[in-house]
Design a protein around this nucleic acid. Structure first.
Lengths: 205, 205
DNA sequence: AAAGTGTTTGACCAATCGGTCAAAGTCACG
DNA sequence: CGTGACTTTGACCGATTGGTCAAACACTTT
């Protein structure tokens, strides 16, 4: 569904302030969830007044919706890059590593999605059953082929993908818990080594 | 006074209503998060009036705190049961299976914790750095011993535990996403088979 | 400089929130 | 039955929330 309504990109100021608002909203929504975030918080973080926010976005939901929509692509890019013609093990390990990097570099985005899905995805339910499912089905078929031809071990491709999501996003979404247990140590070097070993062993035929 | 009576004397009604409220609060908090839940929702779910709720619990935070406190034990029990004297692989696979069962049977509890940790654990931060860290340290030492003595493969025990948390809780916390992708199929049978294979292969020395 | 468009804001609003309170209703027990 | 403790509720409160609006301000264009 490509609803390309020509939204008139107008002035420099509009461009700049819209981006500022989206950036501030990402900060606030990812930290407090949709219901927990307030327009005042977002306005304050963006350095604008609340009515000024609503001059650029018609409502709190509109900001949230634009955020999620703009992020969905970024979020699925690593999976899109999974290449049927590449080396299976390398492709899957590469996918895992890219997702882990995203947890390290874009933790707010990860938490934004986590918040949404945790509450039952009330605002992007369609996106999950649509684009996401289609993409996962496509890539799962590729993995299933690799399994069938013996190039990797026999694994359920769907649960393999789920496991990559779970393991990598865990380090962003449950950051507070991970760091409490590790006592401040940076989790990511250890995580990458562990996940490398895990998937290397799993995928050996 | 002359009579030394234990202060918190609970009547039948108190017992019953407290439990009803906690049960209703689990429903509402796990679905909407702390900030997203309202006293009216909880009261309605419990079949009581809002002032009646506050007759049993002094505040919204008090309900939430009691919920978390009461749940922390249940949540850590599977890890406590990890036995240093048992068979390493069986112990770890057993731990994983118990955690997966909890995701299937107690998804609300899982989401309650997920909500709390996602927002940075503002209300149980102490519990994470205290009891939880102590328990994980203790069990990680056991696993490290198993690794060192060659009874299981060499793995980072902390990230091994994290991986079990991430993989099992994923099926409760991201239920909406998992079911959207699988199209309604019950994820748990497939998940258990996948995780069994995964950890069996990982732990082989 | 004047006009027109785009931008910003203070004041305000209705709805909802967590929480209070006094009064009424109910229960246990001598 | 009577009495005192326990339980329930309608009415209410101050604070916060998302959102509106007219007026003021600023920037371009002529």
């Amino acid at each position: 569904m490509s609803e390309a309504k020509p939204k008139p990109r107008k002035t420099r100021i509009q461009q700049r302030n819209s981006e500022t608002i989206i950036e501030a909203a990402l900060d606030v929504f990812s930290k407090h969830g949709f219901r927990g975030a307030t327009l005042d918080q977002i306005a304050n973080a963006a350095g604008l007044s609340k009515p000024n926010l609503l001059y650029y976005f018609s409502s709190k939901e509109a900001i949230h919706a634009e955020l999620l929509e703009g992020l969905m692509d970024t979020w699925l890019d690593p999976l899109r890059a999974l290449d049927a013609n590449g080396d299976p093990k390398e492709q899957l390990l590469g996918y895992m590593r890219r997702k882990l990097e995203m947890s390290r570099d874009l933790p707010r985005e990860s938490r934004l999605f986590a918040n949404e899905v945790l509450q039952g995805a009330p605002r992007i339910g369609a996106g999950l059953g649509g684009d996401l499912k289609a993409l996962v089905d496509e890539k799962a078929a590729i993995i299933a082929d690799w399994s069938r031809s013996g190039r990797i071990a026999q694994v359920d491709p769907y649960h393999l993908i789920f496991s990559i999501w779970a393991l990598t996003q865990h380090y962003a979404d449950f950051d507070a818990q991970v760091r409490a247990v590790l006592g401040g140590e940076d989790p990511f070097p250890g995580a990458e080594a562990f996940l490398d070993t895990l998937y290397t062993k799993l995928l050996i035929p």
